[in-house]
């Protein structure tokens, strides 16, 4: 028996494709995300498991000894799974999956039971252990499109949903109800200087992402868990694919055939 979320997408289904081979781990996406989404900062952020981060960069290694060691970077936000366990388990309906593929998180509804964090194998969800703090004066730079979160609630990457709302308002003024490719992209995708992050509507056959997800080198994190993430990764390096997933051999064979 599987707890499958019966997810039906509408005419839009947004996905993110991250090319690991292009990612230099520079962190511009992380900063852009923080600025865009009003992430709080504390004076000591070195205990990463207590930090509020929507996007983190994992550094993985091939495990070989010096000088054969190689490293790669995996930026990881929320996977916006098509079968999101977090949505399933939230007792207060503070999170749902909408028809464009975004898994939401409603801060004033959440009462902080953290069951969703236990359910998420990606660690995409973080908890506000403290009241949010911003360096004195920098509150002036807060983005009004994103509400700040109070202590005691869970938060996570929203695929910059407010940017969708913004793009949609503009389109609606022009009488359109659908968006063009590129009208709505996340802050991280926009900031990435190497173009490693691509974002768009996978149901639009002309979008960049709809082509990228078909790459034989595309994979998703922890696919075996059956979560059906909306974030795809691409790497031509076999060891990266193996390290990044609970890799299964069938897939390796498929790629070697092609």
């Amino acid at each position: 028996m599987k707890h499958e979320h019966k997810y039906k997408s509408g005419p839009e289904k947004y996905v993110m494709v991250i090319d690991i081979d292009k990612c230099t781990g520079c962190g511009a996406c992380v900063i852009a995300c923080a600025v865009e989404n009003n992430l709080p900062v504390r004076t000591d952020e070195t205990r990463k498991l207590l930090s509020v981060d929507w996007l983190v960069i994992y550094k993985i290694t091939n495990g070989k000894p010096f000088p054969k060691t190689r490293i790669a970077y995996i930026p990881r936000g929320c996977m916006h799974c098509d079968n999101p366990m977090c949505v399933h388990v939230c007792p207060a309906s503070a999170t749902d999956k909408d028809d464009k593929g975004v898994v939401s998180q409603i801060y004033p509804r959440c009462f902080g039971c953290r069951y969703c964090m236990a359910a998420c194998p990606y660690h995409a969800r973080v908890f506000n252990w403290w009241d949010p703090t911003f360096p004195k004066g920098t509150e002036r730079g807060l983005n009004p499109d994103v509400s700040t979160r109070m202590r005691g609630v869970v938060e996570k990457c929203s695929f910059c949903n407010h940017r969708y709302q913004r793009a949609k308002e503009k389109a609606m003024l022009e009488g359109r109800t659908t968006l063009r490719d590129g009208e709505y992209i996340t802050a991280c995708a926009e900031a990435c200087p190497t173009g490693a992050i691509t974002f768009g509507n996978v149901k639009d056959p002309n979008s960049k992402v709809s082509k990228l997800v078909k790459s034989p080198y595309a994979f998703r994190l922890l696919e075996k868990f059956g979560t059906e993430p909306s974030v795809y990764y691409i790497s031509r390096q076999e060891w990266v694919r193996r390290e990044a997933d609970r890799y299964f051999e069938e897939k390796a064979k498929k790629i070697s055939k092609e």
């Binding site: 852009a32 004066g137 730079g141 983005n143």
Partner: peptide
Amino acid sequence: VKLEGSPLDPIGRGGISPLSASSLQLFYGP
């Protein structure tokens, strides 16, 4: 409220560096 890379920049072509992106905090900062 936000600094983003300009696509009109021929050097970075829309990308941004961590420092530029977070320089708003220096601007408003204590």
